[in-house]
Computed example of a mutant assay.
Amino acid sequence: MATWAEFAAEQPDLAAFTQGRFAADRHALVATLRKDGSPRISGVEPDFTRGELWMGMMLDSLKSRDLRRDPRFSLHCNTTTASMTAAGDAKISGTAEFWTEKDDYLKDLYDRTGWMPEGGELDLYRCDVTEVVSITVEGDEMVVLSWHEGRGIRRVAKK
């Protein structure tokens, strides 16, 4: 597994694009696995800070329970238009580690945003990445850049 900083050092352009897509609308979708193995899609606000990818969520939410049981996730930026020609698309997959030492993160969050969850209460996950994908339109082609840990980057263009 790669930390976000490790991925970004290897693929700075793809990392910057991906962070930009997630920053364009803080709300994103995360896919987790239910106890029976079926997928669950939930809203989340991913946070890229201090070289890490973080996900905070309500205490003991269903998605949090899913991640504690099976840490695998996929994260998708909010796509707000039918056409990707303007902004593109970004996806991240990996594993999420339940983080109990929240004080430093919460202080940093407050310093950056002026916001703190009521009473500092949230379930916090630090995420390692195994796959990052961007989809953009270049001319008359859809361009898919996909990075997988240990394999590097692959570019596929489709008309």
Rank of each mutant, 00 (worst) to 15 (best):
D66C: 13
M57Y: 02
E97L: 11
S74P: 03
C77A: 13
P71F: 04
I92M: 05
K102W: 09
E118T: 13
D70Y: 02
S42K: 04
D123R: 03
L67W: 00
D103S: 12
A87Q: 15
A82Q: 10
R40Y: 10
G119R: 12
M84W: 14
G119F: 01
T100P: 00
E101N: 11
W99M: 02
E118Y: 01
T79Q: 13
D111A: 10
L109G: 04
D108W: 04
M116C: 13
T85R: 15
T80E: 14
L67H: 07
W54S: 03
G56Q: 13
M55R: 03
L59T: 07
F73S: 08
C127R: 02
N78D: 14
D66R: 09
L62E: 15
G56R: 09
K91W: 09
E131W: 06
Y105A: 00
T113Q: 07
S42I: 02
C77R: 10
W115Y: 13
V129K: 02
D128C: 03
W115D: 13
E45Y: 02
D104M: 02
L53A: 07
S83A: 09
G120A: 01
T49H: 13
R68Y: 01
I41Y: 12
L59I: 04
L109Y: 14
D128F: 04
S61R: 03
D128I: 00
R40I: 06
E121N: 12
L109P: 08
Y110T: 11
S61K: 04
C77W: 05
A87R: 15
G119T: 02
A87E: 15
T130C: 07
S61E: 10
W54N: 04
M58C: 12
T49V: 14
G94A: 06
D103I: 09
K107T: 12
T130Y: 05
R69A: 15
G43F: 07
A90D: 06
A90C: 05
G43L: 08
D123L: 01
M84P: 01
T113N: 10
Y105T: 10
D66M: 09
R69Q: 14
E121W: 05
A96R: 00
Y110K: 12
A86R: 14
R40H: 14
P71Q: 07
P71Y: 06
S61W: 00
M116R: 15
L124K: 06
S64H: 04
S64W: 02
T113K: 07
E45K: 03
R112E: 12
I92K: 07
M57C: 13
L122W: 05
M57G: 10
G119H: 12
W99S: 01
G114W: 10
T80F: 11
M58A: 15
E131F: 08
D103N: 05
L59W: 01
S74D: 09
W99T: 15
L124C: 11
G119C: 02
D70R: 13
V129F: 00
M84S: 12
E131Q: 11
L53V: 05
C127L: 09
I92H: 07
T95D: 06
R112W: 05
E118R: 14
T49M: 15
M84D: 12
C127S: 01
D104K: 03
T85A: 13
T81R: 14
D47I: 00
E45H: 09
D128E: 08
G88R: 05
T49N: 11
L124S: 11
L53Y: 05
T81I: 04
L62N: 12
G119E: 09
M84F: 12
L67K: 04
T81D: 15
D128Q: 05
D108H: 07
D104P: 04
